[in-house]
């Protein structure tokens, strides 16, 4: 099976704050890592390959530094990787990101299965996968909790639904977004790190794509616009209590009684 995993580089922590006076973003030079949810997608791909053979490729869209997450994927066992990087992709919202990734996928030739993480820890929309599937005219199933069976040209999977679990068979080529905990992701191997350190990462930019119309990418290809950013609201109807532990506990006990919770 030819499998492609979408991986994104995200900031290590959420150390971003907005200056309440100037309304300006303050982002320290934070470290980056692979979106933790994508580790599950990659692990799923590697298990499928181990079972039925094939190749596992990874694709990522981001700045040149995002090549790091592709290297990380190599250390876990991916066979090849592509980075989509271009200044013209800057400012992409979900629609533009999904479109750019779909253009990248089209450049890669035959793919039977695309796997995405459930969501990213920075964008956190869980929308890029389904939108990509639409652009690639593939069926998709989101929130896959289990791969039950891998057939020649289809997969039987379990998906998580509100109050239900559904078992469904989906024809390839298709896209799945996988839940956290579907399989425990393996650790990157030191041996693989050494053996893959000179591996190539294919770089695609806008002029490698079939659609080279700049209006479909980056800020220009993004229908949503951030109009303003602001710190969260403050509740003004509040009491602040200070003092010793015992005092505070007693005060809280009385309050809970007054509110009839005890």
């Amino acid at each position: 099976m030819e499998i492609l995993v979408c991986v994104k580089q995200v900031p290590e922590t959420s150390k971003v704050e907005v200056d309440p006076v100037t309304g300006v973003l303050k982002r320290d030079g934070v470290d980056s890592k692979m979106n933790p949810y994508d580790l599950y997608a990659l692990e799923t791909a590697l298990r499928i390959k181990e079972e039925v053979g094939g190749t596992v490729k990874v694709i990522s869209m981001g700045p040149p530094q995002a090549a790091e997450v592709i290297k990380e994927a190599y250390m876990m066992g991916a066979d090849a990787g592509v980075l989509l990087s271009d200044r013209k992709f800057a400012g992409s919202d979900v629609l533009a990101t999904a479109y750019t990734l779909s253009q990248g996928v089209r450049k890669m030739g035959n793919i039977d299965l695309i796997l995405c993480g459930k969501q990213t820890t920075d964008g956190d929309t869980a929308q890029v996968g389904p939108e990509m599937a639409e652009y690639l005219a593939m069926p998709h199933i989101a929130n896959v909790i289990k791969i039950e069976k891998i057939k020649d040209a289809s997969l039987i999977v379990e998906m998580d639904m509100p109050h239900m679990v559904e078992v469904a068979e989906i024809q390839c080529p298709c896209l799945l977004t996988v839940e956290k905990d579907i399989y425990q992701p393996r650790l990157p191997s030191y041996k693989k790190k050494l053996s893959t350190k000179d591996w190539d990462i294919s770089m695609f930019s806008l002029h490698d794509f079939a659609d080279q119309n700049e209006k479909n990418y980056g800020l220009n290809g993004s229908p949503t616009q951030v109009e303003r950013i602001f710190p969260p609201a403050v509740n003004i109807d509040k009491e602040i209590w200070t003092g010793a532990g015992v005092e505070l506990a007693d005060k809280l006990t009385s309050k809970l009684k007054e509110l009839k919770f005890v």
């Binding site: 939108e131 639409e134 929130n143």
Partner: peptide
């Protein structure tokens, strides 16, 4: 919901329009 999070992006991409999650 798990259904809405799967359906809304698909519809948004079909109409090439914006979608804001959550």
């Amino acid at each position: 919901t798990t259904i809405g999070r799967s359906l809304a992006p698909r519809v948004a991409a079909r109409f090439k329009t914006g979608l804001t999650a959550d």
